[in-house]
Design a protein around this nucleic acid. Structure first.
Lengths: 343, 343
DNA sequence: TTTTTAAACTAAAACGATTTAGTATATTAG
DNA sequence: CTAATATACTAAATCGTTTTAGTTTAAAAA
């Protein structure tokens, strides 16, 4: 197999004895507008097809300032929730000839900032960001620079940005009601120690429901990176077994997993005495014993709303589009862990 | 906030009253070699630092032909196994100033080919590929073009390429022995209907072990995309309950999940009568009832070996490096599903 | 017939870097 | 004292596009 020599606009022009300008116009569909004759268009198109010419994206990007690349930055791309959305985003983007750079900020500001800086130098066209708590200014700076940014899952109160997410408070409120309706009276809430909106609102929902029903509210807040995972489990263990509870509600599947491990490792039989509910669904909750009730976020829909909005932003040169908030519906899947109880 | 004007080599040169060449030499560490004086170096570096200049990667890429982007193509990026490796690859790549384009080929040849074509136009520097069955020629073409390619998880027999993976036959053989040693005599093997190496070798290992111990071998092969998931589960259900078996060994966690669902949905209590073993570990296997024995692939190590090798390839202009095969060790985690049985 | 306007194309600059092939001055060798 | 060599820099080409500002010829208007 011989090394195919690179084709170029210039080469094509020479071969056809015309100017690169003409070739470029035809290639970019500006032929009509630029009064190129039909025969000429035909000729160029035919040759381009014959040699299967594909423009050099780098050169194109350099000239136009558009890289046709978008960034999808999340807390952890290996997390099932984010990975599923990423998978969908990928498809939608490639369909439109965009590439996606996926990256994980570990919910750390330094990492977020480093990544954003990195991408700025690469003139990425747009950002979909699941922001770490302290990057409000950086997000603002991007917006000031007129670069399309969409936040998702969490946002910065008061900062007007495009946003795709769910109504965490409402979802959490309803989920807590579900527990209450099923007879649970001493509901513990295990969440992350953070002021970020998604978690804060889930807590609000929980507190609202318990308060309304005059139930005690017991909350355990765990540091995100509480060093070693042992500590996390120790905290959960203590909370579950020392507090006087009849149900546990986890604010995110990251914690649920640890919680279920705690049961498994300590007293597997005891899990049936508790109501268990979790934010974020996972296939495995359907095969766990007992099956675990969960609040599912509409991952596919989130992905498509994100990309739909992003494409609009990418094609607007004028940034006249006022910040758009897209709030999607969650679904509560009641399963055995909160239904058929023997309490 | 005012829009920061773009800096450039040319701009810097003008400001300092020197030539762009000099600036470039200094920036690329060629100052000494090009006999630039120490004061000059100092001056340039100081100014560059002052204005926090960052070179335009696109321009750089166009000129040098290196995009500093690598592709990580897998079957499905939302799959836990691949997502975990991706997460690690990401870190290692960014450390070296490389970006990574993640993408999923769904194990389909057309998608694989489309993606490769897409990236060629973007002059990606290197490819890490989990190949679909029919893209041998495309991979060969990339290698002919002298572009770094590493296959992983599966390979093309006879085609010499760089490769990172495990010894699937050996791992599968040992896993089957584990079942046999724990008293199981009628072991069913559920796998995908594919001739791809990773699956073929897992089957080989299973067959070898059962044959050696004069046990019957019963294999169920399922089409990857057998239309609707119902059909897949129907097949599994029939296999599990109609064949006379005392253990089930799944060749990949994609099938294990369905298998466990089958048990859950039909007769949850029956799972304790079977030995259950799966290829590929998952956190949830530790909290399933019973806990599920699994063969774990060294995901982190795979990722680091992949990137280590990739970086070597990227820095070799000469392609003198003969194809390197890196075979890593798996770990068998025996858990309750194969240990404490009442059969 | 002369002037305008339209049609069909093109030359050359620009995007922002890297690199080859110099030039001018200073130093050393012969 | 001249020639050779080293030092310290630079002009201009190049990567492969896009786009602005033309030019030339033909047709329409005056």
């Amino acid at each position: 197999m011989k090394k195919a020599k690179k084709h170029s606009v210039k080469g094509i022009a020479e071969k056809l004895n015309i100017s690169p300008t003409t070739v470029s116009f035809v290639l970019n569909g500006k032929a009509k507008e630029k009064k190129i004759s039909d025969e000429m268009i035909e000729k160029v198109l035919a040759y381009v097809k014959e040699i299967n010419y594909k423009p050099n994206q780098l050169a194109q990007s350099l000239r136009t300032g558009k890289s046709k690349i978008i960034v999808f930055m999340v807390e952890d791309i290996s997390n099932h929730f984010f990975a599923s959305i990423a998978r969908k985003i990928e498809d939608l983007a490639y369909e439109q000839d965009y590439k996606v750079l996926f990256c994980s900020n570990e919910n750390k500001d330094k990492k977020s900032r480093d990544l954003i800086q990195l991408f700025k130098d690469r003139q990425v066209d747009g950002y979909i960001i699941n922001p770490s708590p302290g990057i409000r200014n950086d997000v603002e700076a991007l917006i000031q620079d007129d670069i399309p940014v969409i936040l998702f899952d969490r946002y910065f109160p008061g900062l007007k940005t495009h946003y795709v997410g769910i109504d965490n408070e409402e979802a959490s409120y309803k989920a807590t009601l579900h527990l209450i309706e099923n007879g649970f009276k001493k509901i513990g809430f295990i969440t992350l120690a953070t002021t970020q909106t998604q978690m804060a609102n889930r807590k609000k929902g929980y507190l609202k429901a318990t308060k309304e029903h005059a139930l005690a509210s017991k909350v355990l807040e765990i540091e995100f990176d509480s060093g070693n995972p042992k500590i996390k489990k120790e905290l959960i263990k203590e909370f579950i077994f020392k507090e006087d509870l009849d149900a546990i509600y986890f604010s995110t599947n990251y914690l649920t997993q640890s919680g279920l491990e705690v049961f498994k490792e300590n007293s597997p039989e005891l899990i049936d005495k508790f109501g268990i509910l979790t934010f974020d669904d996972h296939e495995f909750f359907k095969i766990h014993t007992p099956t675990i009730s969960a609040i599912a976020q509409p991952k596919d829909e989130m992905a498509s709303e994100l990309m739909k909005l992003m494409l609009v932003l990418l094609n607007k040169s004028s940034k006249d589009l006022s910040p758009k908030e897209i709030i999607l519906k969650t679904t509560l899947f009641p399963r055995n862990s909160t239904l058929v109880k023997n309490h």
